[in-house]
């Protein structure tokens, strides 16, 4: 049965984030309150996810390396996108990541005051990945790097729970001056990535498309491309993997009605859907 391998220190799995850092990521995410730039929302979501993953893997003796994690940014530069002391590192064990955030900020979160109200509580918020919005959208070059990382990973960990690649973008590839050709190239790159496999299944690819249009209707985890508006969204749909049954369960916990064959693809995501998609894609299912 696919996607059932235990995730343990001796048989870890991996996450690769491929993040659009093009100039358009400086635009505000529609309907966010308070207004938030897309690049800030993505950086917060990724840092929060890594914080939560570290918490889930925390044991008294240290953070257990159930996962290796890497992030690739693409915009004016293409490549590993960690900040601080980890700059330039590729896939790396979670314990090393937890030990070396670039900085630790103080953020506020609302907590129950015990009397029916909410109060602000200060929390330490580690930053590994900083917002960047600059340049074009060389999506294929980034996906090629992801392919190399994942290829190396599955060869070294042939029995692992397959790598999960989460690709977040708000735009169309600029790898070719011809949009149709660029679209075809991205489709090919995604198909190549998805074909990489361990004995437990193929690499799982999530495509999360951020909305630029305040009136656009979000489409989350469809199982058919018939309602998608254009060739570009159909390409991202085709390039995404089917949700595993555990991911379907997590999606339903979020109140998202997913059908059989639902794809790990969202179009025109707003902030809430972005965070939900990251949770659905990265919630640990079989830690040992």
């Amino acid at each position: 049965m696919s996607y059932s391998a235990e995730i343990s220190r001796t048989n870890p799995s991996s996450f690769v984030f491929v993040i659009d850092q093009s100039g358009s990521m400086a635009e505000k995410i529609p309907n966010s309150d308070p207004p938030k730039r897309k690049c800030d929302a993505v950086a917060d979501a990724i840092n929060n996810l890594l914080r939560n993953l570290s918490l889930k893997c925390a044991r008294p003796e240290g953070v257990r390396d159930y996962y290796y994690v890497g992030v690739i940014g693409y915009g004016s530069n293409v490549g590993p996108a960690w900040s601080g002391a980890l700059a330039g590192r590729e896939l790396m064990p979670l314990s090393e990541l937890a030990a070396a955030p670039a900085k630790i900020e103080e953020r506020s979160k609302k907590v129950d005051d015990g009397a029916g109200g909410l109060v602000d509580q200060k929390v330490k918020f580690p930053i590994w990945f900083e917002p960047v919005a600059n340049g074009g959208t060389p999506m294929c070059r980034a996906l090629e790097i992801a392919y190399q990382w994942v290829d190396t990973w599955v060869k070294a960990h042939p029995g692992s729970f397959p790598p999960i690649v989460i690709h977040i973008t708000d735009g169309e590839s600029t790898d070719s001056s011809d949009p149709a050709e660029a679209n075809r190239m991205v489709g090919e790159a995604l198909a190549k990535l998805k074909a990489l496999c361990s004995t437990d299944g193929n690499t799982l690819v999530f495509n999360v498309h951020l909305s630029s249009n305040p009136t656009a209707r979000p489409i989350s985890f469809p199982n058919s491309s018939s309602a998608l508006p254009d060739e570009y969204s159909k390409m991202l749909f085709d390039g995404a993997s089917e949700l595993t049954s555990f991911m379907q369960t997590v999606a339903r916990e979020h109140g998202i009605d997913v059908g059989e064959g639902a794809k790990s693809f969202v179009l025109n995501a707003e902030l809430t859907l972005l965070i939900q998609a990251l949770d659905i894609g990265t919630r640990p299912s079989n830690l040992r």
């Binding site: 918490l55 044991r59 003796e61 240290g62 953070v63 937890a98 330490k124 580690p126």
Partner: peptide
């Protein structure tokens, strides 16, 4: 310290 975790991580882990 109660654990060998990075300092930023011990407090939220214990809160959970």
């Amino acid at each position: 310290r109660l654990t060998k975790l990075p300092e930023w991580l011990e407090e939220p882990s214990l809160e959970i």
